[in-house]
Amino acid sequence: MVEKLVKVVNRSGIHTRPAASIVKLASKFKSEIYLIRDKFAINGKSIIGVMTLAAEQGSEIKVRAEGPDEQEAVDEIVKLFESGFGEI
């Protein structure tokens, strides 16, 4: 299991489009992927789930992956968060 904490950096937070790009990326991996906010863990491959986090700018999300490609999955998802979903 690999975990890493990331901050939402883009101003509008994880709205529909960023959520869609997270899910699209997460679905590429074989590992189970979870995004966790205050103990509220959701499946990273579910768009409704990711949107449920209603993550605003500055909020912290823990990315957790479990499976054969867990390290790669966490790295890439964290990179996507840090890039601000192309909105900066």
């Binding site: 768009i47 449920t52 209603a54």
Partner: peptide, 9 residues
Amino acid sequence: TSLVQHFME
């Protein structure tokens, strides 16, 4: 949840 209600993907 109150946000998702009965929306579905």
